[in-house]
Amino acid sequence: MTTKRIVIISAGLSTPSSTRQLADRMTADAVSIMRERGVEVEAQVFELRDLAHDITNHLLLGFAPPKLQEALDAVATADGLIAVTPIFSTSYAGLFKSFIDVIDPQALTDLPVLIGATGGTSRHSLAIDYAIRPLFTYLHAIPVTTGVFAATSDWGNGGDGVRSLPDRIFRGAKEFAELVERTDRSDLVSDPFALDRPVGHLVGGFTGE
């Protein structure tokens, strides 16, 4: 059975958090769909609130403490990413953007991404397409077509109608699962100490031939 690794990052600031709740529901649907298709899934969740001090220190000092490095390594080697942020002042949270800023610029290349966002009213839903999606596209990730926005009024919806939150979550999760299943990023994980030329070129041009 094929095994895929997905990483979930939640930028909610409160406990409990509607952002984490949305991330959990998106993850549950994506994992369920992949397993139904015969794909085993390993899911790892990171609450950015718990990494806030480490992220700030990395921005200031240029190195990642162990817990933050674990999250960065997990993203770099993942087969898919579920990224969920609250919307503040019409855009993603500063903590969310700060985490993206400390990721290696090449780490998101060809990475399938399911985007989620939460906010007080549905008028903030466009932030997914004018703020969050361009961010991941710029970093050469592959955001799926459906982004999932959850306003306060969406919680407790019974699921009636094609525009309900459960339906949007399922649609996005299905697109994500299908993309993760057919995406192979194994050739992007390389040894940072590997040489792209024979070592003889570094010692007087000797090639061993």
Rank of each mutant, 00 (worst) to 15 (best):
T2K: 07
T3S: 10
K4Y: 00
K4C: 01
R5P: 06
I9N: 11
A11K: 05
A11D: 09
G12Y: 10
S17G: 04
S17I: 06
S18R: 15
Q21S: 14
L22D: 08
A23V: 08
D24N: 14
M26C: 11
M26S: 10
E36C: 06
E36G: 09
R37N: 09
G38C: 00
V41Y: 03
V41D: 02
V45K: 10
E47D: 13
D50V: 14
A52Q: 06
A52C: 11
I55L: 10
H58V: 00
H58F: 04
L61F: 12
F63V: 00
P66H: 04
K67S: 13
E70Y: 11
D73P: 06
A74D: 05
V75A: 10
T77M: 11
G80N: 01
G80K: 00
A83D: 12
P86A: 07
T90V: 12
S91Q: 07
G94K: 11
L95T: 05
K97P: 00
S98C: 14
D101T: 04
V102F: 03
D104P: 03
D104R: 04
Q106S: 13
Q106P: 04
T109R: 15
T109G: 12
L111A: 13
P112K: 03
P112M: 01
L114R: 03
I115P: 11
A117I: 04
A117F: 02
T118M: 10
G119P: 00
G119S: 05
G120T: 02
R123L: 13
R123F: 09
L126H: 05
A127R: 01
A127V: 00
D129M: 03
D129R: 03
A131C: 06
R133Q: 04
L135N: 07
F136A: 08
F136Y: 07
H140V: 11
A141P: 00
A141F: 02
I142R: 11
V144W: 01
V148L: 08
A150I: 09
A150N: 08
T152V: 15
D154H: 07
D154F: 03
W155E: 01
W155Y: 05
G156A: 02
N157M: 11
N157R: 08
G158H: 12
G159I: 08
G159T: 06
D160R: 15
G161E: 09
S164A: 15
S164P: 11
L165H: 05
D167T: 15
R168W: 02
F170I: 14
F170N: 11
G172A: 07
G172Q: 08
A173D: 09
E175R: 02
F176Q: 01
E178Q: 09
E178K: 09
L179G: 01
E181S: 05
T183I: 03
R185N: 02
D187L: 06
L188Q: 03
V189L: 07
S190G: 13
P192L: 12
A194T: 13
A194S: 14
D196I: 14
R197E: 15
P198H: 09
V199Y: 11
H201P: 08
H201K: 10
V203A: 14
V203L: 15
G204I: 08
G204E: 05
F206V: 14
T207W: 08
T207H: 04
